[in-house]
Design a protein around this nucleic acid. Structure first.
Length: 285
DNA sequence: TCGCAGGTGGTCG
DNA sequence: CGACCACCTGCG
């Protein structure tokens, strides 16, 4: 199987990237690498740390299994956001902010993936009031039920997420095997809205979709529209803001205003460090 | 058993 | 507006 090797990558760690809550179709392998499907392709991604500081700074070679040089230039370079200087971003976020300094140290290899807009819409509608293993299961089942079959990987059948058109023609009952619960009608309604009016282009249009409130809308603008200033506030971020920045648990307005003021255009990236940080701390206890 | 998991839509006052 | 509250589902 073809491998593509990227030399001298910095600030990149598969575990941080694929476990920081931005995506649901990447799965950890025994060797610490991640296998996943995006943009119609299935690949495996791993980091080989290099140098004395390699492990600490997340620097080294990134190896993409099942990718050609053309795939890399056309897909993965953008998808993995490899042209952005995260070292600089981390420095700016950490300056004068001890909480963020620790968060950045915990999730130092995070990068914000440039995901497909429709995929983020479907994924984050499913994510509401739900847990990550079940979200992943739902997305897999939904793809197997109504998605296009892609090239097999490792002898396994792989399916794309259902298209807007396909989903728009289905009824909620058709999705019963996916076990989406009350989210099934949200998904169908949203697919019909998008089939009718096209994909949303800003926060307001994203918010108009069915099953999309402020939290999911911010996830979609951040991960699907690549607006890095978006700052999704979920239970975990509320927890960090409460425990580390001293906000009242329910003061979401105050948290949003603080994030806009403190993190500005980097709000979304800051959110990912905070999310990864608090979740990794919880895993320790 | 029952609360919880990356919230939202509907319905009150 | 803002504060409730029901809601599919599966797991500990």
């Amino acid at each position: 199987m073809a491998e593509y090797v990227i030399e001298n990558v910095r600030d990149f760690h598969p575990e941080h990237i694929f476990e920081c809550g931005q995506c649901f179709r990447w799965n950890r392998q025994d060797d610490g690498s991640y296998t996943g499907t995006a943009m119609g392709r299935t690949v495996n991604i791993r980091l080989c740390p290099e140098g004395d500081e390699g492990e600490k700074t997340c620097a080294g070679k990134v190896i993409i299994k099942n990718a050609s040089p053309e795939d890399y230039e056309k897909i993965w370079r953008q998808y993995l956001d490899l042209d952005r200087d995260y070292g600089m971003i981390k420095q700016r976020l950490s300056a004068g902010d001890e909480v963020m300094e620790n968060a950045v140290a915990a999730g130092r290899g995070i990068r914000i993936l440039k995901q497909d807009l429709w995929e983020t819409i479907v994924s984050f509608i499913i994510s509401q009031n739900n847990n990550i293993p079940r979200i992943k299961g739902c997305i897999e089942k939904l793809s197997a039920l109504a998605g296009e079959r892609l090239e097999d990987y490792d002898g396994q059948a792989v399916y794309a997420l259902p298209t807007v058109e396909r989903l728009a023609r289905l009824e909620s009952d058709d999705l019963a095997p996916v076990r989406l619960g009350y989210r099934a009608p949200y998904l169908i309604k949203t697919a019909r809205m998008v089939a009718e009016k096209g994909l949303p282009e800003n926060y307001e249009e994203v918010s108009a979709l069915c099953g999309v409130g402020p939290k999911v809308a911010n996830c979609i603008t951040l991960f699907g529209l690549h607006d890095l200033s978006s700052f999704p506030i979920d239970v975990w971020v509320r927890r960090v803001m409460n425990e580390m920045y001293g906000f009242e648990e329910k003061d979401v307005r105050g948290m949003a205003a603080f994030a806009a003021e403190r993190f500005g255009e980097l709000g979304g990236i800051a959110q990912q460090y905070l999310f990864y940080y608090i979740r990794s701390k919880k895993g320790e206890s």
